[in-house]
Design a protein around this nucleic acid. Structure first.
Lengths: 232, 232
DNA sequence: GACCGCCATTGGTCTGACCATACGTCAGTA
DNA sequence: TACTGACGTATGGTCAGACCAATGGCGGTC
């Protein structure tokens, strides 16, 4: 077995078994190395691997605030991971569409039952901003923001993370496809109309209607966008 | 900026921009280090981070089969990531339930329209094996296998990867919760009945029915399983 | 008692060395 | 000619040691 895998397994086992929890501090790298009978560089490689998964976080210095500690910052890690794999073109467009339908039906329905006044206000703001957007460069991030915001409003961290990851991974591809369209303004107007309806359903607290409108919205968009085959 | 982040950004940028695709070979570590003006150990830490995300894969030796190459092994990386964060209690039970409902409604519906005779045979086999399972240790992996198999049958790689990752991350927690139950055999019999109905709907090609049955199945299971609050 | 500076601790980084593995080459042989 | 085997080389895997940078605690000074 490779040395860094030894360290990886050791730390992972500590987490899975509950010995380490969020906030726990790992032994210093040098100490962990001698404990496991491996070199410090191997320990560091294991720590890096877990750090990139949002499980560890390192801080230099002395005292209680320093050292490598266990965290649980999955959102960024998950987004990065999905973004990379989507960008590698592993997923055909149709697959991504279906995944978005599944996930965003869920977040739209949950948002309908969870939305607070404040959340609705923020959603309304984005919807309004999209109406006013004249260019693709202006519209695309707002559109992404709309979907991500709904996921966040749903107050479900896992669905929210997954939705955001998939949607953000598509920001560039969608923007590029939009630029290839003959009549983008008309397309945008259609989307905005759908956004208004989705918002209305969420505001009215109709989960089933919101889910159906969201599904229709996503399928409609991809039926028109020229995504040419694979994803990126 | 930290040196290893420089390497990380460099490689990531190469992937996101499309310069690297699946199968591409990175420059040797020593060369990449001098290119970026950093030490080899820093390059290695970046490679490890991406390796743990299923984006890179290293092989020793000489010739065309050696070196570090770009891959896209998302499923395993995603499973590990979720498993760790679930174990750290980041995700409340309800969130995971809702996520599973969203994803598996999708995979069940897709499976109903995509299932081949061969796939149906494999599903039937698992359903049968679960009927015969007497112990939790025997049943739990089969149950996971059933859900994963449906995701695979759906022929949607993204939903399949996500479903598998979430479900496998829950294998241990569910098995442990099952062990705490007073009357597990009765619980198992109930699940098996639902499994049969889901299978029948998929076999008959009824996507809506399959989705509804799957949602009911998942909600029912978690309403009975004693998961005690947080996930692990 | 408050302030300031030294010092120990810890992660961050580099260098250089050596090992293990796998392929390519080339001489030797059948 | 065609096979076979030994050797060299490129590559990742690993380690030891050194030094840097940041941080906080400790102790001395005013």
């Amino acid at each position: 077995m490779k040395a860094y895998e030894l360290a990886l397994d050791h730390i992972e086992e500590g987490i899975l078994s509950g010995r380490y929890e969020v906030g726990s501090i790992l032994p210093p790298e040098r100490e962990l190395a001698t404990q496991l009978g491996i070199g410090r560089s191997s320990v560091r490689e294991a720590i890096r691997a877990l750090e990139s998964q949002g499980v560890l976080d390192s801080a230099v210095g002395a005292g209680p605030a320093s050292g490598t500690r266990v965290t649980s910052d999955q959102s960024r890690a998950l987004t990065r991971l999905l973004k990379l794999h989507v960008s590698l073109g592993k997923y055909p467009v149709d697959d991504v569409v279906e995944a978005r339908v599944s996930l965003e039906r869920g977040s739209a329905a949950l948002a309908s039952t969870h939305a607070t006044a404040d959340a609705l206000a923020r959603l309304a703001e984005v919807v309004g901003a999209m109406e006013a957007a004249e260019s693709i460069a202006e519209f695309s991030p707002l559109d992404t923001g709309f979907h991500v915001l709904i996921a966040e409003v749903s107050e479900n961290t896992l669905i929210s993370d997954l939705t955001r990851a998939v949607r953000e991974a598509l920001l560039q591809p969608i923007a590029r496809a939009s630029a290839r369209m003959a009549d983008w303004p008309a397309f945008r107007d259609g989307l905005n109309e759908q956004h208004r309806r989705i918002f209305a359903a969420i505001q009215a607290g109709h989960p089933d209607a919101a889910a159906d409108l969201m599904e229709h919205h996503i399928r409609h968009a991809y039926s028109i966008l020229p995504m040419n085959g694979a994803m990126p």
